[in-house]
Design a protein around this nucleic acid. Structure first.
Length: 206
DNA sequence: AGAACGATCGACT
DNA sequence: GTCGATCGTTCTA
């Protein structure tokens, strides 16, 4: 199964955040395959970014994962009730990562819907807001701190360029899309870094 | 030991 | 648009 290599993750974080758009995230759970297409990311760079947990190489129990090799999953608890999934980037020792903010569902949709909504029926509102936030993505993929530190070159959680790389049916004809850049969400406390245009979204052209 | 604070979400006016 | 939930992490003393 072709998946993104450690060298891919070792690149510059801003480049990685852009390059990850359109890639397919695969989560194997109890023998089932859950998958989604990456449509929104944010970059966090410890070297120079006050919004990054490892700003100025700050090393604590939590940030230890950001110092792990590129291609490691950094998952942390936020606001006491949600989790965020990040992909560790740059050469080992440079604490940096790409936050996954949104997916388009690709496979295992019923299971993801159950993880997200339980037995509540699917509605248009729920379909529209299914995987459009970092906490929602982690809920739908059953990712918690227990999965923090997972190796993304392994079999449990990984990214690939196309669905066929994971044995999934290919996408229908690709719509025209472009990358929209803007400031990151929820980092108003981060002084000058709050305005860095380090959020990347894949949006359909009209 | 205690306090402050979130890289969010969903319910509600 | 506003607001509260909820708890691990981090910092202060």
């Amino acid at each position: 199964m072709a998946r993104l290599s450690r060298e891919f993750y070792a690149q510059d974080t801003l480049e990685a955040a852009r390059a990850l758009l359109g890639k397919v995230l695969v989560r194997r759970l109890d023998g089932e395959t859950l998958a989604g297409r990456v449509v929104e990311t944010e970059a966090y760079v410890g070297r120079c970014d006050k919004a990054c947990h490892a700003y100025h190489y700050r090393r604590t129990a939590r940030t230890e994962t950001l110092f792990a090799p590129p291609g490691t999953a950094y998952i942390y608890l936020i606001y006491g009730m949600y989790h965020c999934l990040n992909f560790v980037t740059e050469p080992e020792g440079e604490p940096a990562a790409v936050l996954l903010r949104a997916l388009q569902p690709v496979a295992g949709i019923e299971t993801m819907a159950r993880l997200r909504y339980g037995d509540k029926p699917m509605t248009d509102y729920r379909r529209k807001n299914f995987l459009n936030g970092p906490g929602k993505v982690c809920r739908a993929l059953a990712l918690t701190r227990a999965e923090n530190g997972l190796d993304l070159t392994g079999d449990t959680l990984f990214l690939c360029g196309r669905p066929e790389d994971a044995g999934l049916p290919s996408f229908p004809a690709a719509a025209r899309e472009r990358i929209v850049t803007g400031p990151r969400i929820g980092v108003d406390y981060a002084e000058e870094a709050r305005d860095f245009p380090w959020r990347f979204r894949l949006v359909r052209e009209e």
